[in-house]
Design a protein around this nucleic acid. Structure first.
Lengths: 109, 109
DNA sequence: TATATAATTAAGTCATCGCTAAATCAGAGG
DNA sequence: CCTCTGATTTAGCGATGACTTAATTATATA
């Protein structure tokens, strides 16, 4: 699972809010529409983005579709950023890495 | 520190790649320009976004400015997503939360 | 102070994205 | 089968954003 794709879907403020709501409890499209103050159409389009990124999935119950977060995606995000945290700590700790990577490999034209 | 702002800055693919490079070692603008294959101007604009989001900062060394990630921001991200992971686990575990929040509070026009 | 170099800013272009309204699709139940 | 309802898709608009080139700023050093 690819972290860059997940955060690309999550970074839009409205979608981030929607996702946070889904972490509290399941929601159908209409419920989210009311809560967020945008049309059901807009919610549906956001859900499509979240769904195709692998962040959420829907369960059909009669008339309604209940959306909820994919555990696998949330795990992936948590692990990726924990790894970044470790990398950053290492970088600050290791003085050998505290040099710019630029080397004069270019020709002046 | 606000997670939504951090991921909004990070979600752009080029900026995500830049940030990953900075987790390995410091880089100046020119170095990133070479590595990423876009102009220094474009890199500089990306750095501005990352800087203003609080994700990176620059240290001046002679001619060069070395950019590196802010530990505080990386910590914030790691903690936020770990919290999401816990929320998601709770949601899947608690059957009471497995209901859509929608209630018929609307008037049919 | 003058100059060379790194970095930033400005201007402009092209593509992407989020939203609404309206149309369409899908399924449950009379 | 028909209808009602929830959800999705389509079309179009306005805004945002990523990139380039060119101009500008800032600074280290001769």
């Amino acid at each position: 699972m690819k972290t860059a794709i997940l955060i690309k879907a999550l970074c839009e403020p409205m979608r981030y809010s929607i996702f946070q709501q889904l972490l509290v409890r399941k929601h159908c499209v209409r419920s989210l529409s009311k809560k967020m103050g945008i049309t059901e159409s807009a919610i549906s389009q956001h859900m499509k983005v979240l769904r195709e990124a692998g962040l959420v999935y829907g369960e059909k119950y009669g008339y309604h579709t209940h959306y909820l977060p994919c555990q696998e995606a949330v795990d992936c995000l948590a692990e990726s950023f924990e790894q970044m945290r470790q990398q950053s700590l290492s970088l600050n700790r290791d003085p050998k890495l505290c040099e710019c990577a630029f080397r004069e490999g270019e020709e002046s034209k």
